[in-house]
Amino acid sequence: MTAAATFAAVTMRFRGHTALTDVTTAIPADTITGLLGRNGAGKTTMMQLLTGHRVPTSGSVQVLGQPPYENGSVLSRLCFIKESQRYPDQFRVCDAVSAAASVYPQWDAQLAAQLLRDFELPTKRPIKKLSRGMTSAVGIVLGLASRAPITLLDEPYLGLDAVARQLFYDRLLADYAEHPRTIVISTHLIEEISDLLEHVLLIDRGRVVLDAAADALRATAVTVTGPAGQVATFGAVHRVLHTESLAGRARAIVRVSTTGAHRDAVELGLSVEPTGIQQLVVAMSLASPHTPAEPTGTRIPLQEVSQ
């Protein structure tokens, strides 16, 4: 794996709180990476470090082999679309598009025009007058048409309806297939996007808790259901992330560490289901040592969860 960007022992402290603690990771090149985590986990901070909008308190961030801060040769190959992007008051959609066209060397005007039609954006209307979803769509048009070798999308879908979101995923995938590039997308809608992801980076309270290829994750995460004793036996040799039990039966989300685990589980009389990335992320975030312990006596009944 070649890395498009690397974080080496990066700590980012703001007045009074620490957003990232000793983060060391690499963003794989020509891959779609999902940057996942709860609100305030540090996703946006990581993207701001990648774009040189901020400089780390300690450690180093390298993008395309160089530090990005005030580095024109890196920045011209980088596009950062964020949910909170502000546009100048008088800017119309077409002004934003032509400004982006003049900045990105690989800008594709045809793709931009196509996307503007797809999202039904009125090009002559001031962006300020657009709805939340349409403003997000403007960002998506800029992000995709920039064809930037590194494209960072920070919750780019905010306010978009389900149809438009599907359109975004489709267009992203289609254009990515034709023009492979490094895409990092931070999102809360994991279920919707998990098929797109090739690499998953999960951060929780400023620390990396999961950094793996999506395929490997799908292969190692399973949910087993069966008699509590058998589940415990199976869990003893693997990493149990989350368990719910009721009346002698248990259901556990487990990260397996051996290749024959699936067969072992079946031999123990357990039923095995694949676990989606979203379930895994939720389980891992809850299992994180920094999360406050669940108060006793509020365990969710098995039936409710397994419906």
Binding site: T51, G52, H53, E70, N71, G72, L75, S76, L78, C79, F80, I81, K82, Q85, R86, Y87, P88, D89, F91, A96, A99, A100, V103, Y104, L142, A148
Partner: peptide, 17 residues
Amino acid sequence: TVAQVFSFAMGLSISRR
């Protein structure tokens, strides 16, 4: 113009310089 264009320009990966 500085207050408004700065955020937008940096969003398009323009350096501060």
